[in-house]
Design a protein around this nucleic acid. Structure first.
Lengths: 338, 338
DNA sequence: TTAGATCGTGTTACCGATAACATTAACATA
DNA sequence: TATGTTAATGTTATCGGTAACACGATCTAA
């Protein structure tokens, strides 16, 4: 591997002079600069950023830690993050925690040893507080994405979960539904609590009774088994509409209902939080509350890099992105007597 | 930041002894080991992998360079790659080339300076040969994903593009279609050529005429404008079925047809290469030739790491993954006189 | 003419680990 | 008892850059 010393030797200058040419810093005569550049090209020299990082104490790398890149929300978020990182001169490492604290811990250790300059963190839940405090202890800046964590102050980019949920449930109510189920993520995740709150508020605002049997906490991951929904479907008065708290749940539910020969939306209306990326374009089907996923990632990186480069205000910044209700085919007016 | 010397000092041993404890190498008395470990925990010490990389000459990082993470095929592939990398002790950087050689070049430079241990490379096209040769020059192992590049010998994981295309087109033919259009990716991409060849072969095997007006090369990206399809739709004898060479094209085409009030599949059958991940579960609609995307990434990393660690045979290995035809709603028998 | 400023470049130390070799003490063996 | 082993640890050099400071040569202004 060619090093800066090889260049220096061949150009008959010191390594420092070569370094100055590489970084275009300090004063160099045009003549020397040209000579050094020529030799660097001849030898296909590429500076070793590991060595540079060791002395400058910055890696120009960020870590994006999400729950699952195959969730379309995070897919698009990741694209936004990568675009922003690239534009700002940072590389992006990524990891999937699968909503699992143990896996999250493994990534935390990697983050610490890799000495990334900052982290975009979609925490697995409230218990992630430990991991975030570890980042603080090690002075690694981070931005929370999508989910807040009680006890943690930081920059963050989140959505209007409560508002969005309320809006979506009111849409269902407007269609005549009164028995509306909520299939939710873990209660230890802020968005799940907020979506619950929005659901509850919509019922109250419309003088509908709250029935705890209509609320299930099944986690934000895809369901492994259609029977998980049975408690809901076998109620004496089953729901006529289901609000899934995220897209994975909705997809699982639609699949489960299909396997049970329950037609959507004729027999059951379905709606959920988060859209499906390109899929929606293909065959717009599910009524959703969409969030600007790309912006979550893009703005998240901007906040983070501002913080890293000390361009940020001392106060923590909290970006709250708007949701958008998109009504499609999966929600239909309730037919009387069905 | 706590360094190995801080630990050494506090434990009253040399840095080397601490290093041995960290790496569990060499001989250390249990007593010393325990003492050092205790102090490492007390001080929240995490070894600096940048420093380690500089001396060991390995970063334990891989780069995954794909065209677009939001393409469901690459999303799932990325997940497979990350899982495998994590299991094998590697971190994963990723980049989106957008099928663009210039962007690919920028990532190449990053790859070279970052000194990653290997690269998973889905090349933008045949012209990527230059970039791949640069990797060879710098002795950076790589595995080609999904696409071959003439003039490049390497490990690779690819699909049966020709076979899959033939199968899909024969499915359309079996439904009675004789005017079948191909909307293809750039001819400078191996998969596009192979899918073209499969298309052609299917026609020949079934004694159908080949009409070059039915073939369009629009690239593998999403179409910006529905009018791009006009040359096809405004033919005297327009097609009754369209084979889109990838999922992005199919999604764009379905969208374009919708905007033109052409119903799928009643007025036009559509099928494509590559599935849509979770979307397919949601609302299975498009008939596709699916590829095992997760395996592309997972096996790709395995090949790569074998190569990096010199566990691979000297010969290049070429994994060819099978395709699977999944017939869904977007393809229907041709009605006579329509 | 001469001191001080400026320009262009070099020297040295250091970032935080590890490889290779050196050293010491305790132990084993002849 | 002398010598060779072995276990446990230390010393030194090095990975490939950059920061900080040093230095000589040329230029500028009094």
């Amino acid at each position: 591997m060619v090093t800066i010393y090889d260049i220096a030797k061949k150009a008959q200058v010191s390594a420092m002079t070569v370094s100055r040419v590489i970084n275009n810093s300090g004063r160099i005569s045009d003549q020397t600069k040209a000579k050094v550049k020529k030799i660097m090209e001849e030898l296909n020299y590429v500076p070793n950023s590991t060595a540079r990082s060791l002395v400058t104490q910055e890696t120009k790398m960020l870590t994006l830690l999400i729950t699952d890149i195959t969730n379309p929300f995070y897919t698009t978020l990741a694209r936004g993050a990568e675009d922003a990182a690239m534009q700002l001169g940072y590389k992006l490492l990524f990891g999937n925690s699968d909503e699992n604290l143990q896996k999250e811990k493994e990534y935390l250790d990697i983050i610490l040893s890799t000495r990334v300059d900052g982290v975009l963190f979609a925490p697995a839940g409230d218990a992630s507080v430990e991991h975030l405090n570890a980042l603080k202890r090690h002075s690694i800046p981070f931005v929370l994405l999508d989910r807040e964590v009680p006890g943690i102050e930081s920059d963050m980019v989140i959505g209007e979960s409560k508002e969005g949920a309320r809006q979506l449930v009111e849409h269902l109510i407007a269609l005549g539904h009164t028995r509306i189920a909520l299939v939710n993520g873990s209660n230890s995740i802020s968005t799940a609590r907020q979506r619950y709150a929005g659901y509850w508020e919509a019922l109250k605002l419309n003088d509908l009774p709250f029935d705890e049997n209509l609320v299930m906490e099944l986690g934000y991951k895809q369901l492994e088994d259609a029977s998980l929904l049975d408690p809901l479907l076998q109620l004496d008065r089953p729901p006529t509409a289901i609000f899934a708290a995220n897209n994975f749940l909705a997809a699982s539910i639609v699949g489960a209902l299909r396997s049970k020969q329950i037609r959507v939306p004729e027999q059951m209306s379905i709606a959920c939080f988060d859209d499906f990326g390109i899929l929606s374009q293909l065959n717009p089907f599910l009524t959703v509350v969409a969030q600007p996923a790309y912006q979550f990632g893009y703005l998240g990186v901007q906040l983070l890099v501002d913080r890293i480069q000390n361009k940020a205000a001392a106060d923590w910044r909290k970006i709250i992105l708007p949701t958008e209700l998109i009504c499609r085919e999966s929600t239909k007016p309730l037919l009387t007597n069905s």
